[in-house]
């Protein structure tokens, strides 16, 4: 059972070497600026001039663009069709066909929304592509995130493939004893019901054992914790994070300015 647990791609790039918190702060700042800042082209410029070049600096450019497009193209298509045709208050008709009319206001709104979503999704994607989830959580723990919260996040990442494997096993076991999982939709849904019991109760039993296991490894030990991995944090990065705060304040200011 080898499953890919995260988006992370191992590379030796300056972006990978950056402190995870710095990347997290930059990602949040870019998103906030894209949503708060003024200007129709601001979010698209953030993507083209900052995020896309960064992804190539991080040596994950191809994966970055492909995954972004795969995730967002269907949404964008839907957004443009709906908004350009049905945006309330649209007056400037660009062109019309049959009973429909494409309006400029709708297209502008769709473009702004789409590029904002693009910045949001792609900056997180870039963070995840270049940051190992374990390192990110470790860094956050060292900055005061409770160890139990970090544990919940890390184990959730790992538990999904496990649950899928378990569900497949239970389903196979039931099929091999004659459960019919094909046919009409209603029938398929009914066939899923017997899966729920074993999956949920089995998982609850697992939780108890898992609790014993991490207790046995001193998880709640009263001694101060140490960590195997050392995470770098250079003064330059600290400066960059302050810069991000400044950018956020500026964007907020421009948003609130009448």
């Amino acid at each position: 059972m080898v499953e890919r647990l995260s988006f992370y791609l191992e590379r030796n790039s300056p972006l990978h070497r950056l402190n995870p918190t710095t990347k997290l702060v930059v990602a949040f700042t870019l998103i906030l600026v894209a949503f708060l800042g003024r200007g129709l082209f601001l979010p698209s410029l953030i993507f083209l001039l900052i995020l896309a070049p960064l992804s190539f600096l991080g040596q994950v450019g191809r994966e970055f663009l492909r995954t972004t497009l795969n995730l967002l193209l269907p949404l964008f298509a839907f957004l443009f069709v709906m908004q350009s045709l049905f945006y309330p208050g649209g007056k400037t008709v660009l062109f019309g066909f049959w009973i429909f009319a494409v309006k400029l206001e709708g297209v502008r709104f769709a473009f702004l929304t789409a590029t904002r979503v693009l910045v949001m999704v792609s900056s997180f994607l870039l963070l995840l592509l270049t940051t190992h989830p374990g390192v990110l959580l470790l860094d956050l723990t060292q900055r005061g995130l409770p160890a139990s919260v970090a544990y919940i996040l890390a184990s959730t990442l790992q538990i999904i493939p496990q649950m899928q494997a378990k569900a497949a096993t239970i389903l196979d076991a039931q099929r091999s004893r004659g459960l019919d999982t094909s046919g009409s939709l209603g029938r398929r849904i009914r066939a899923l019901l017997p899966l729920v019991g074993p999956l949920v109760f089995g998982s609850l039993v697992d939780v108890e054992e898992r609790a014993i296991a991490i207790e046995a490894r001193g998880f709640r030990s009263s001694r101060p914790k140490t960590s195997l991995v050392e995470i770098e944090d250079r003064p330059l990065e600290r400066a960059l994070r302050w810069l991000c705060l400044l950018a956020f304040i500026l964007a907020l200011g421009s948003h609130l300015w009448p």
Partner: peptide, 9 residues
């Protein structure tokens, strides 16, 4: 299986 902490990669 249940003794793997789940916190580590």
């Amino acid at each position: 299986f249940n003794q793997i902490s789940g916190a580590k990669f």
